[in-house]
Design a protein around this nucleic acid. Structure first.
Lengths: 203, 203, 203, 203
DNA sequence: AATGAATGAGCTTTCATTCAT
DNA sequence: AATGAATGAAAGCTCATTCAT
């Protein structure tokens, strides 16, 4: 499987730098990280980074863009075959927290650093994030049409509430670092609250 | 001349600088704001700021400390006389969103600039925020004891979920700036979801 | 005379830096000179330069602007009382070369470095230089009206030719550095050629 | 395959790069031009330039050396058959300005970028330029021996004055770019001034 | 207490040059 | 001979902080 790719070394320099950047940004923060830190972590010269990325900010934005694509694809796959809107909500929560657990440093960068950036939040429109969350809003709408979800809830409002709840718990997980914190329990907690909170009738 | 007002002058300047810092940080972001910007906004010399605050970061932390004290006091007052845990949840939500609306710049600083700061989250322990949110956890515990709230929910988990939901909606409100966004509707949405989501039996 | 100025030290920092810059630019060239070289030569910190000048280029342009003002004032004074256009030509030449001799480093900067700058020549309009040279063109016109100077010569063309001749000889003087090179002889040579070359009738 | 044309290929690429460099240097200036700009303009890789030239400066110096050879050869040819020293002066002026007009980009590089360079003037001895101008000094000497040119003029001084006058007018022509500026008129103006200015008796 | 001129460490980015292929 | 990816030194500029007045 891996023997087939002769020039992976070469192609991977983009990848190499990106992964190094995730590690460094997670550890030192975006503004606290120097380009030379990223270069060192990637094992390349400072200037090399500029052959692959326009500037420091482009590095951050590329992390967002590329990783969100993967996240999005993974989410869609995870939701495949799950029909019931409320089941989909639970699946979404579990998927999200599993990603946070499996890609802790990436999560840290996406959450803390990316959202910190004034530029990111105010000038750059994180379309990919909206697409990701939009899937949740769509679930709500579907449930409303099917009659299983209350219609007095604005899907957008619910979407932000859901995302915020997950995000904050992820943040606490990241900050807790080595302490007890079950992301599966977190997923269930969020899922249960929202499923009951949004359902037309609680069983 | 100055003997009559022993420390009014001092207190005023402390306050003056702090309020200026909130305005400037909200507008330019913490790292984007220069000390000289704050000084200018406060109508004092750059050096004067260092007579009242240790450094730039101290300014940010002091904003957090002092404003959280006020927020906390306000929250306790708002909850006074509200006995039922689930009613208290709704009151909390309304209080929180009202503060965001009435002190938008402060909210912007606390949320975007401060809470997302690497240093703040990782090194500094935001005790006051925990106290603020702890009040929510206490509500849950009270409800569980009274039998109105499900006991399979960890109060801490619920607390973070609740805070995250409110926080994210506040963030969207701040980012939306001049567009339609009713914070009262937001408060009700969050309150309804959590009240139903946490209740033992839905009415 | 000098005891009357109490805060010269303070006011002179602008001057101090400017003079240091002239020395450094003359020696290392504009692009070869580092800001830190100028700072060191002026005995101030790097950052101090930016309190008085916008950037490196501003330093160069300010040298030009301020020194041209002095040159211009001096030229006007030197020409005072000299009525005959052809006499004025000779006076101009002598004045110019005397300045080059007395302010060799400044001359070097103005000639070599300032004119080298693409920006200076193509974007910045050296109005002061034109004013300086315009005085020569005016002499020609006056002589043409009085009938002492040939009317088939375009004053502008003559002006550039005159300036070029002086400039090149100044350049050679600067480059010659420690060798024999009489600027007075140079002034007379140029003056003689142009006076004879421009006169209606040679005596 | 390559045995038939031993060094055509090589010469072509040398030439190719040199011509590209002239275009690029004229447009962006020497320091503003990147090696990669020259490489792109020449249609070769960056590294290839270093197979033909030692470094960036060598490129500039080679332009000077090779083009001055051509200029010199052309001047000698233009002067062939022109015997009278004063006629030769006029011929020189016309030849010079014609070259500026016909090789504007080269002129721009030689004058602005090269001649004004600190390094060029101070460290590198532009022998070829001296040879070119020496021809003018020789005219003066010849005229002085024949009795048609004043003997109180130092040929070297006159040479620099003449060159400076032509150079400055060329510079104005280059800077004027698209505006009216007759180089023939310029040539006549300079020639007339110097011929009259240097002649023993004006006709 | 207040000032604000002065400091100088710190960092992103550019680009001439090299060298493995 | 030719390539062009990689290098890494170099420097302009900013701004938090200090301190003499």
């Amino acid at each position: 499987m891996s023997t087939q790719e002769p020039n992976r070394e070469r192609t991977d320099k983009h990848e190499l730098i990106l992964e190094a950047a995730i590690r460094v940004f997670a550890q030192k923060g975006f503004s606290g990280a120097r380009i030379s830190d990223v270069a060192e972590a990637a094992g390349v010269a400072d200037g090399t980074i500029y052959l692959y990325f326009k500037n420091k900010e482009d590095l951050l934005l590329t992390i967002f863009e590329e990783k969100m694509d993967l996240l999005l694809a993974g989410l869609r796959q995870a939701l495949e075959g799950v029909e019931d809107p409320l089941d989909r909500v639970r699946t979404f929560a579990h998927y999200h927290f599993r990603q946070v657990r499996d890609h802790r440093e990436l999560a840290e960068v996406l959450q803390i650093e990316l959202r910190l950036s004034n530029k990111f939040l105010k000038e750059y429109r994180p379309e990919k994030l909206w697409t990701y969350l939009g899937i949740f809003a769509d679930m709500i709408r579907a449930g409303q049409e099917q009659g299983t979800i209350r219609t007095d809830v604005d899907p957008f409002m619910a979407m932000w509430a859901f995302f915020g709840a997950m995000d904050e718990m992820s943040m606490q997980f990241i900050l807790a670092r080595h302490r007890k914190f079950s992301l599966d329990a977190a997923a269930d907690t969020v899922a249960n609250i929202f499923i009951r909170g949004l359902s037309k009738e609680s069983a």
